[in-house]
Computed example of a mutant assay.
Amino acid sequence: MKRQNQISLILGAWCMALLAILGCENVISPLTDDAENVFAIHGFLDMAADTQFVRVSALRSAVLAEKPGLENVHVQSVDESTMEVAAWSDLVIELQDGTEGVLYYSLFKPVSDRTYELQILKDGILVATARTTLPKNPPYFAGVPTGDTLQFIQTIVVEGIAGRPFEIAVQYEVSRPDETPTETVLIEYDQDGSNTLGGWQFDVFLKRDQFSVLREVDWPLFGPQLELRRVSAFISLKSAEWVNAKSPNNFENAHGFFGSVGRFELPWILPPDAVGTLGFIDKQDPL
């Protein structure tokens, strides 16, 4: 097995996202009363990541029993839409409590609305599985901008979801007059939205964002106008497994947590008069 003590830069985001369920401490119970249920699996697939991680632990059935190892254990995943198999490599890490844990990682990006089965094989025999289906790319629409130049907002409705996405940001792509290169400004949105018929909605504060864009690109409020190239919202959605994280039902001969996170860009065209209200020149390309 490969050993690496300092992997915080790689796994920091992974640990934070899983903290409420497992954390990066060795809190997995080492015992099991079920002879068939001998593996603990904790991890999730992330559409935004090029590398996927999952923690696997072998359990023993009695206090005095010898702690089982993972020397003959191999992990792989299957994309059930294409039946493509991805191999996972092992990595021994030092946990926050000073003990060691084993992560498995694989280099691929999962695809929305596909089901992946994580498979644990021991001595070449399939002994445990966990499955997750990534969230779908949701339909959405942008309402008509409303308000005056001081309180100028636009409502975005995301259909088919119940409750707030756990991450929301709005991105503006602008360019300086007569210059081709674009500059990107990403603005995180922390405020709550509201449930609506068939989905969930939130307000984009266009005028407030205008000042943020000007500040980020170091552009004067009164002067030549920036060119607006693109506006998008970025949202992150959790799979169904996160709802019942404490009592999952997507395991065979294992327990723990295995879910997924969908990351989606929702672009829209800002009406020309709204672009003018913001003091930009409309250079948006059709979607």
Rank of each mutant, 00 (worst) to 15 (best):
Q225G: 10
A162C: 13
Q225F: 15
T196V: 14
P139G: 07
L150N: 15
A245F: 12
L214K: 09
K207C: 12
V158Y: 02
L228A: 03
L228I: 12
D203H: 13
Y140T: 01
T180F: 14
Q191D: 13
T155H: 01
P248L: 14
N195V: 11
R229V: 05
Q151V: 13
V157W: 08
D209A: 13
E183T: 03
E216I: 08
L228C: 13
Q171R: 15
D148T: 12
T155P: 01
S247L: 11
L197E: 08
Y189P: 01
V174L: 07
G163L: 08
S175A: 06
Q151M: 14
R230I: 01
L226C: 02
F166K: 04
V157K: 04
D148W: 14
V174K: 02
V170Q: 03
L214V: 06
L237T: 00
V185K: 07
L186M: 11
R215D: 10
V243L: 07
L150C: 04
P165I: 01
P139Q: 09
Y172H: 12
N195R: 12
K238T: 00
I168D: 00
D178A: 03
R229M: 08
L186W: 04
V204R: 10
K246Q: 02
T155Y: 12
L228P: 00
E159C: 05
Q171Y: 05
A142Y: 05
A240G: 05
I161R: 06
F152A: 08
V158G: 03
E188Q: 15
F205S: 09
W242R: 07
G147Y: 13
W219S: 11
Q171W: 06
S247D: 11
G160D: 02
R164G: 00
S236E: 10
L186C: 10
Y172N: 04
G193R: 11
V144D: 04
G163Y: 09
K238E: 00
F152L: 12
D192Q: 12
G198K: 04
E179C: 13
G147T: 04
D203I: 09
D190N: 14
D192M: 12
V231I: 04
I235C: 00
D209N: 15
V204E: 09
T180M: 15
D148N: 15
P220R: 15
D209Q: 04
V174W: 07
F234P: 09
E188Y: 15
W200R: 02
S236A: 12
V213M: 04
E183W: 03
E167V: 08
F211C: 13
S247E: 11
W200P: 00
V213H: 05
T184F: 06
I156F: 02
L206H: 04
L228E: 07
K207I: 14
R230M: 03
R164D: 01
Q210D: 02
R164A: 04
Q210L: 05
P220I: 14
Q225C: 12
R176D: 05
Q151R: 14
E173T: 10
E227V: 13
N249S: 07
